[in-house]
Amino acid sequence: MTQELEHQFVTELEQNQNIVHKVCSLYTNNRDAHNDLFQEITIQLWKAYPKFRGDSKFSTWMYRVALNTAITLYRKSKKQPKTQDFDSVVYRIQSEEYDPTEQQQINLMYAAVKQLGDIDKALVFLYLEDKNYKEIAETLGISEVNARVKMNRIKTKLKAILNP
């Protein structure tokens, strides 16, 4: 029984691991920290898996656990270097229709997002993942109106970071 559950879980996580990697890439600055957070999220997902009823999609359920782990449960074990050595690997430019100004803008935006607080990052993450405000509000446990207000504030904050 446990083995079956294990197999099912690992298979589903393997297929959906991008969600977790994306969370890790937002919240950490180097490969060690990335792997560390990935592992903690995996442990939390596995612990909660027996309660996953399948009434929502596995991926939907993952967003909540992954973000909760990143902003609430996770303890940064080692001091993270301020330099973003991992970014150069993860945020590699791979656009076919390469537009230097557009790409530059995108890179600047990524750098700005990484400077945001943990909660703000969670909102941006869900927004980038194309979640609507209702889902964002439910995941964070705030009202929909506040989610919108907060998102607007983040946009202003990003603008300030980009144009100091």
């Binding site: 612990k47 309660k51 909760n68 782990t69 609430t72 705030i142």
Partner: peptide
């Protein structure tokens, strides 16, 4: 404490 709660409740 449940990781399945929303962030606010969990905190």
């Amino acid at each position: 404490i449940s990781v399945l709660d929303n962030a606010s409740n969990l905190m």
